[in-house]
Amino acid sequence: MKQRYVLRVNGRGMEAAAEAHESLLDVLRENLRLTGSKKGCNEAECGSCTVLLDGRPVVSCLVLVPDAADRDVVTIEALATDGVPHPIQRQMVEQGGVQCGYCTPGMIMSAYALLLDNPDPTDDEIRFAISGNICRCTGYGKIVKAVRAAAVEMKGQAGNGGAAS
C-alpha cells in the first residue's frame, strides 16, 4: 500500500507516495529524481548513498522512508549555492579527489557532515569520517587532502564573516 509522506529535502517540503518498506534512497532517486545519491550496494556497505538526516550522515539505503518523514534531509544537490560549488566540491576537483565519480557524492556528504561537527579535523579524523565510503579509484589520499584543504578554506571564510557553507 502506497502512502503519502512529507519529506523536507534540501530545505523544501516534498511529498512522495511510497510503500512503508521503501528506502529513503529509492524515494530520493525514483520519486524526487535526486540521483546524485548513488546506489552502490543497497546494503549499507559502500556509502555511495550518504545523505544528512537532521545534520547527521546516514546511508540512505538503510533508512526507511517513514523514518525520514518530517526530518531534514540534505543531499549532494544542495551543497552548491547559486551555482557556486561548496569548498569540499571544489577541492575534490582541484586536488584530484574525483576519478570515476560514483563514490564522490556520498564521500562529499560524509566529509560535509564531519566539517559541520569538527571544522578543524586531523587526517585521522577525516579518514575515520569517510571510512564508510568506499572509493575504488583514488586510494583516498587525495580525498583526505581535499577535505583538509576545504576545512582550511571554510575556516578562512568563516573568519572573514563569509558564509561557511
Binding site: R29, T35, G36, S37, K38, K39, T75, I76, E77, L79, A80, P85, Q89, R90, M92, V93, E94, G96, V98, C100, G101, Y102, T104, P105, I108
Partner: peptide, 21 residues
C-alpha cells in the same frame, strides 16, 4: 601541467548521470 579534468566538477556536484540514474 595539472590541467583539471573536464568531468570532475559535475561529478562532485552529483549532476553526472550514470546509466542507473
Amino acid at each position: 601541467k595539472n590541467v583539471t579534468k573536464p568531468d570532475a566538477l559535475e561529478k562532485a556536484l552529483g549532476a553526472t548521470e550514470y546509466v542507473g540514474d
